[in-house]
Every structure is written in structure tokens, then in C-alpha cells.
């Protein structure tokens, strides 16, 4: 049972960084796409509409993605 729990929780763990990274990735893609379409930087409202996630959650995901990147960067250098 401990093993199963460990497996489930590990999966959950992966999902945290995965889901934040995925959100950050989608926001970055939407930003680029909207910038092309609008000819200017999109606002948070436009981004949030495109990604389907609240403005606050988008900034959390982007900070988390930046953190993960800066934490991992030295490891891969």
C-alpha cells in the first residue's frame, strides 16, 4: 500500500511542475501569437482569455517556470 501511495503521490508531484510548466508554455505561445495578430503586446486580459486561465494563475505559472529554469540551469551547464 505504501508503494502504491508513493507511486500516486509521485505522479501527483510530477503533475505540479508539469501543469505549471504547461500553463507557462501555453501562455508564452499565446503571447507570441497574439502579439503577431495585434501588432502589440497583449494585455493580461487578452492572454487569460486565450489561455482560459485566470490572470493570477498565469503569473504564478510563469514565476514557477522561471524558478524551475533557474534552479536547473546550473545542473545542465
Amino acid at each position: 500500500a505504501g508503494e502504491i501511495r508513493r507511486f500516486l503521490r509521485d505522479d501527483g508531484m510530477l503533475k505540479v511542475s508539469r501543469s505549471l510548466k504547461e500553463t507557462a508554455g501555453r501562455a508564452a505561445a499565446a503571447r507570441e501569437q497574439l502579439e503577431k495578430k495585434l501588432g502589440r503586446e497583449p494585455t493580461m486580459e487578452e492572454l487569460s482569455g486565450e489561455v482560459g486561465i485566470t490572470r493570477e494563475e498565469i503569473v504564478l505559472a510563469m514565476e514557477a517556470a522561471a524558478e524551475v529554469e533557474s534552479l536547473h540551469r546550473p545542473v545542465y551547464q
Binding site: G12, K15, V16, S19, T54, E56, E57, L60, A64
Partner: peptide
């Protein structure tokens, strides 16, 4: 409310929580 939720979520990431716990 949304600001408060995200602020607490950001603080608790130090505990390395699962998505479900957040």
C-alpha cells in the same frame, strides 16, 4: 480572492506540495 489564493499557493510551494494539496 484570487490574489490571496495565488499568494498562499506561491508560499506553500516551498513545501513541495502535490497539485491536489495546493
Amino acid at each position: 480572492e484570487s490574489f490571496a489564493r495565488v499568494a498562499v499557493a506561491a508560499f506553500m510551494t516551498q513545501l513541495n506540495p502535490t497539485l491536489e494539496e495546493v
